[in-house]
Simulated scan of single mutants.
Amino acid sequence: MKQFLIIIFLLVFGSLQAQEWQSSFDKAVGLANKENKPIILVFSGSDWCAPCIRLEKNIWQSEEFKLYASEHYVLYKADFPRKKKNELPLELSETNAALAQKFNPKGHFPLVVVLNKDQSVLGKTGFNVKASPKKYISILNGFIP
């Protein structure tokens, strides 16, 4: 019984965490329009790009960023994993490739693009290892009119 409750807790907690990052770009755009929020579009190589992994750990997973983002941004991660075990479904890979062609044609990783609800670019940034979550939020907010 105890193990069952732990599994239920982990499933519920995991689903709450996963709700911050939208599962599709179309959902992100729809939510941005509905809630009148900017979109944070992240180009990441989750299993090969060291700065991407540090950005994930130091900023995206921080409680400060999660709390702020849930109120102020719509989040979408365009991931480009290289390991076979992390391979994305074809449709998602194609969507991410199309987004890269439009918003990241030079293939920079990580690249964080701030878009308005109409998908116009407000600003772009990468990852500064010295930036705290608070400073990173300030950088992102600096792009928003």
Rank of each mutant, 00 (worst) to 15 (best):
120 S>C: 00
11 L>I: 13
52 C>T: 02
123 G>C: 14
30 G>T: 11
83 K>C: 03
115 L>R: 07
112 V>E: 04
127 F>E: 06
98 A>V: 08
126 G>R: 03
36 N>V: 10
89 P>H: 14
87 E>Q: 14
48 W>M: 00
2 K>I: 09
47 D>Y: 03
81 P>E: 07
141 N>F: 07
22 Q>Y: 11
86 N>S: 05
44 S>K: 05
34 K>N: 03
69 A>I: 02
107 G>L: 06
40 I>P: 10
13 F>P: 00
6 I>W: 13
79 D>K: 07
22 Q>F: 07
47 D>C: 03
133 P>A: 08
8 I>C: 09
119 Q>Y: 03
72 H>F: 04
79 D>M: 03
76 Y>V: 10
135 K>R: 03
108 H>L: 09
72 H>Q: 08
64 E>D: 10
26 D>S: 13
121 V>D: 11
79 D>Y: 00
100 A>R: 02
93 S>K: 15
56 E>R: 03
27 K>C: 01
43 F>C: 10
93 S>Y: 06
93 S>E: 14
57 K>L: 00
19 Q>T: 10
117 K>H: 05
78 A>H: 07
97 A>L: 13
127 F>H: 02
141 N>L: 11
24 S>E: 11
78 A>K: 01
141 N>C: 01
64 E>I: 12
24 S>I: 09
143 F>G: 14
28 A>Y: 11
128 N>E: 14
120 S>Q: 00
29 V>I: 14
145 P>K: 07
106 K>G: 00
20 E>S: 15
124 K>S: 15
21 W>D: 14
61 Q>P: 02
122 L>D: 04
89 P>N: 15
99 L>T: 01
90 L>H: 13
